[in-house]
Design a protein around this nucleic acid. Structure first.
Lengths: 258, 258
DNA sequence: GGAACAAGTTGCGGATGACGCAACAGGGTG
DNA sequence: CACCCTGTTGCGTCATCCGCAACTTGTTCC
């Protein structure tokens, strides 16, 4: 036993610790051996050896000799291989690109991951206003169009499990569970979701579901931009293009082929 | 004995093995426990436990219950955190974007990694012809403009170490070491590199170095496109824009601020 | 239909390999 | 110069991980 106890880790202790180091670095950006050791609750030397092993695979690198550690390029190599293999990203990319060109706005692709939305890919619109790159970021589910679409793919039991406290971000954020359930029901019926100023004032986004061969909602595709460029009438124009694009990707993934 | 021997691994055996699994999966895309065990030269159960630990951190996922394993979304999460922290990508992105808009061709950002060029970022040009996404890929150093620029930042000793056999890709590929040294010398003098049909017939690229605060060449920025769109006279037009962009990024990274 | 096979998964005991300790090596700062 | 803070390394012990072998489950082939 011994290691079987603590919250949700796997089998091999040292590997688990090493991977936790990666997560810590992802969270804090940079950390020294001592900080890491404290975070893991192990001895400095232990942390050092783990970090060294990670370093030999280029997953972390030290900023200077005897310096702190941060995530390394090896992570990017792996990520390149991951997206190359994830048929979702593979199939969706050309469609996203075309949609971005057609609308002039930014297109994002997101999946459900650990009670939040994980952005897998992003294609910038033609506009000069370049938004933050969200790829790899966790985003709240209840305050984004992508999040609402992803939630709409869950059944009620799963919904309960995923929804914790609904944080307020703006005056428009939906914070009552009952209201959110209504909204999700609406999303299911319409086949798309809209979020205006709910995560950030001045940010508007619309999203539509992507289905796999079994019909499950496996991802969400969104078009987003500043609210002044996406007023209600513009949203009306964008929606059909978005929904069509999402359907196209779903088809490529085998949806509707019986 | 045992672990100290084999090529270039770090200290902690089980972690080293686990990370090797990630690399194997990056290479082959999908693999079962048995395949992985064979690749590492360990017992099935060992491989299984390592994979399970990786899975608990979402770095790998199984395609189906009792199915094969592949890289998971956790890798993308880490990658998101990595690029967010790598000030190179951060600083270079807007410049790349502007350069892509100005030239209409694809802009890439590459660094040296383990005897090859690693592409960190890519901004597509306006043209419909969308090239392959190279992000996260390894590219030979001697047959690309980016590679030549990166080589130009090394001293002779490091050059010797990095250069193995010079594979031929096309009739234009430089395969003699002496010729490559001449070329690299030229790149140093000119401050940029050109590669026409050297990696692939019909592919032209030009690249310029990005320096850090110490003046080292830490990355390379390139403009590339089909040779028919980038004949010699067009390359002449593009070059100043490229060099200026590379200098701009270098400045942002502290180069030339004393 | 069931037998043989091959995949992933799990319990167990033994020895190997990872851990904590403590000492070392540099760099700042007072 | 002494102190304190880093990251780094040798060593002995004991916990941990590994290999074995048995189990489970799904597929193939009579």
């Amino acid at each position: 036993m011994s290691n079987a106890g603590e919250g949700g880790n796997g089998g091999v202790q040292s590997v688990d610790r090493a991977l936790t180091i990666l997560e810590v670095l992802a969270r804090v950006g940079e950390a020294g051996v001592t900080d890491i050791a404290a975070e893991l609750g192990v001895h400095k030397s232990t942390a050092f050896r783990l970090v060294t092993t990670l370093e030999s695979h280029r997953l972390v690198e030290q900023t200077a000799d005897r310096g702190k550690y941060r995530l390394g390029v090896g992570v990017l190599r792996l990520a390149g291989a991951t997206t190359a293999r994830l048929d979702l990203v593979q199939e969706a990319r050309p469609v996203c690109r075309q949609l971005a060109a057609g609308t002039g706005e930014t297109v994002n692709l997101a999946v459900l991951s650990e009670s939040s939305a994980l952005y897998l890919d992003q294609v910038a619109g033609s506009s000069a206003l370049q938004p933050h790159n969200w790829v790899g970021q966790h985003i709240p589910l209840h305050a984004t169009s992508n999040g609402k679409v992803l939630l709409s793919g869950l059944d009620d039991a799963a919904l309960d499990e995923v929804l914790g406290g609904l944080s307020r971000y703006t005056a428009m954020t939906i914070t009552r569970k009952s209201q959110l359930r209504e909204e999700i029901k609406l999303v299911r019926e319409q086949g798309y979701a809209v979020a205006v100023d709910e995560l950030e004032v001045g940010l508007t986004a619309v999203a539509a579901p992507i289905h796999n061969a079994h019909g499950d909602v496996i991802a969400s595709m969104s078009v987003s931009g500043p609210t002044f460029r996406l007023p209600a009438e513009r949203v009306e124009e964008v929606l059909p293009m978005l929904v069509e694009a999402a359907v196209e990707v779903s088809h490529r993934l085998g949806w509707g082929h019986r």
